[in-house]
Nucleic acid binder design. Structure first.
Length: 603
DNA sequence: AAAAAAG
């Protein structure tokens, strides 16, 4: 690998820093479209050049065989002669990316680092690599480790403990984990670490000199919503700091031209929503031929949203390397049959990781359920809001129309409210989220677009104005508060129209030691059957805490029988006083080694 | 059923 990239790099010898010609100007008389870009590169030339003796006099100047162009934003390092050469530190940029790096109280991601050891994890598959317990180098790349520290991540979450060695051991991963389990780091850390070690892929000379520059990302991350893609991209910016890897994000709803120009500036880690990626693939703007790492985030949600054909086109219908030529990581909250099929087709001999439902037992969140008829909801809402004592309040409704209507109503009542839903333009959505995050608007009315995956700090109250049809969605929604070990309040309006969630709701409230109002029990008796009951997709009534399991364990799969009772799960770890911790035993593939989830879970 | 996502 390293030898190849050496050869590629040595093809182009471009003189020293002062006479450097960006790759996109070589062999052509084209001028940069934007003189600002050119000059800003020059300004930074000396900055980049200081790294190692002589700057980059004997390499092609760009980022090795990477997809990058001549202009590299501040903070982007390079790959020279088979070696990773990070840029020097840049205080201004660090402040931008990480906030106050010196401030120990600064928390960038809403994670309570002390509590998550109690989250139970099951790992299964052939030869599950031993999980790590700390962020260390090795196995992590040193630069990445430094960035992780800058971002104030002090300890790996359960997902990360497993995913780091799994990727390092060249294995595929199917992880059933919710938002808040440190998923993003779960794939960014190992993928970036490996990328920092191995460097960029060689890209075809023809592609470099073609009339239209083509991006050849090394890693591709697919996410269901634009906001989630943006969020992943923002994280990626932190962890790629100073490295040769340049992250890029593409999604629909915003100008494709500017996204294409951004791709021209370098695209090593691509975060994308499926629609826009397909668009850019059709335009020939992106090639997947050099993809080493493929990540599908919230895969179940992407299938729910009907993305399967688009995802299959991306993975199977273009020039993406086959299952054995890439590493694939899939994340999904649930593991229904269609995801199992996807896993079977996209993954090879994967490790199956099931992370316990974090947060359903969280006592950080006070949950209240009020019986409110539809026509009384507005006034009930006003009551709640008048009792509110500052902080941000997130209000969930079921329809886009209701989101607009309710927002108008609240504004009429002199509340600082804004709305986020799929019928708003992308810039409206971004502005809404922005003003909510900064507190300019302290009420955000949202549809399902904001239910999962979005990390908004400081939400003190989540109101389910309309309850979702699915209790899992409820859990996700209330999880927007009570983050980072803070306390939060969750209020739900319920009436006879919500019968289908009554049972599940009772279960969740009881698990979290919350008061179960008597009308809920009454309703539950009324609809003794016909409801979807609890949660967890698999019908593992004796262990519903995981709702997900490795289906390969059933029947006579390659390792089904070898596990000794692989088909029958032990009793619920939630109620039982099991001994041992998730990690302490070190037996990563032992079904019985999980401690009690006992209320210390985090979101 | 609604929402999301490519226009």
């Amino acid at each position: 690998m390293a030898d190849l990239s050496n050869q590629v790099e040595n093809l182009n010898i471009d003189g020293n820093a002062s006479s450097y010609v960006p790759p996109h100007l070589r062999n052509s008389s084209r001028r940069p479209r934007n003189d600002g870009e050119g000059s800003s590169f020059n300004n930074k030339g000396s900055f980049f050049g200081r790294g190692r003796g002589g700057g980059f006099s004997s390499n092609r100047g760009g980022r090795g065989g990477g997809s990058g162009g001549g202009f590299r934003p501040a903070g982007t390092g390079r790959w020279i002669n088979g070696k990773h050469v990070p840029t020097e530190r840049n205080e201004k940029l660090e402040l931008q990316l990480f906030g106050a790096t010196g401030d120990p109280n600064f928390q960038s991601s809403g994670i309570n680092f002390d509590n998550y050891d109690d989250i139970p994890v099951e790992a299964s598959g052939e030869n599950v690599p031993e999980p790590v317990t700390e962020f260390t180098s090795p196995p992590l790349d040193e630069l990445l480790l430094e960035n992780i520290k800058f971002a104030h991540f002090v300890k790996p979450t359960p997902v990360q403990k497993y995913s780091i060695p799994i990727v390092a051991n060249k294995r595929d991963l199917m992880a059933c984990a919710q938002t808040g389990s440190g998923k993003t780091g779960g794939f960014l850390f190992p993928v970036l670490s490996e990328s920092f070690f191995t460097g960029p892929s060689e890209i075809p000379e023809a592609a470099r000199s073609s009339y239209m520059r083509k991006a050849f990302p090394t890693a591709v991350v697919l996410a269901p919503t634009r906001e989630l893609a943006t969020q992943i991209f923002d994280e990626a910016k932190k962890f790629t700091y100073r490295s040769w890897v340049r992250p890029t994000v593409v999604y629909g709803g915003s100008d494709v031209g500017s996204q294409m120009r951004d791709l021209d500036r370098g695209c090593d880690l691509l975060v994308a929503t499926p629609g826009r990626l397909n668009d850019l693939l059709e335009r020939g703007k992106i090639s997947l031929a050099k993809v080493k790492y493929l990540v599908l985030d919230e895969a179940d949600r992407m299938l729910d949203m009907g993305f399967e054909p688009q995802i299959r086109n991306i993975v199977e219908g273009c020039d993406m390397p086959g299952v054995d030529q890439r590493q694939t990581l899939m994340f999904s909250a649930t593991f229904p049959v269609d995801i199992q099929h996807l896993a079977r087709d996209f993954l090879s001999d994967y490790i199956f990781l099931s992370v316990g439902r974090v947060g359903s037992t969280s006592e950080n969140i006070t949950q209240r359920v009020l019986y409110v008829e539809d026509e009384d909801k507005k006034s009930a809402l006003l009551d709640l809001l008048s009792a509110s004592s500052g902080g941000l309040t997130l209000i969930f409704v079921e329809t886009k129309r209701m989101a607009d209507q309710l927002t108008d109503f609240l504004i009429m009542q002199n509340f600082r409210a804004t709305a986020i839903h799929g019928d708003r333009t992308q810039s409206e959505r971004e502005r809404a989220l922005g003003s909510f995050k900064t507190g300019k608007a302290d009420l955000l009315v949202a549809t399902a677009v904001a239910a999962r995956g979005l990390d908004i700090p400081n939400v003190t109250h989540v109101i389910n104005y309309d309850l979702p049809g699915d209790v899992d969605d409820y859990v996700h929604r209330i999880g927007r508060t009570g983050r980072a070990g803070n306390t939060g309040l969750a209020t739900a309006f319920l009436n006879r129209g919500n019968k289908n969630v009554v049972k599940g709701l009772i279960e969740i409230l009881s698990e979290a030691n919350q008061e179960v109002p008597s009308f809920l029990n009454d309703l539950s008796r009324e609809s003794a059957f016909g409801s979807r009951g609890g949660r967890g997709g698999g019908g593992f009534s004796n262990n519903r805490s995981f709702g997900t399991r490795d289906y390969r364990k059933q029947g006579t799969g390659s390792f089904g029988a070898s596990r000794g009772g692989g088909g029958s799960l032990g009793g619920s770890f939630r109620g039982g006083g099991n001994s041992g911790s998730s990690w302490g035993g070190g037996r990563s593939s032992n079904w019985d080694s999980f401690g009690s989830a006992g209320g210390n879970s985090w979101w």
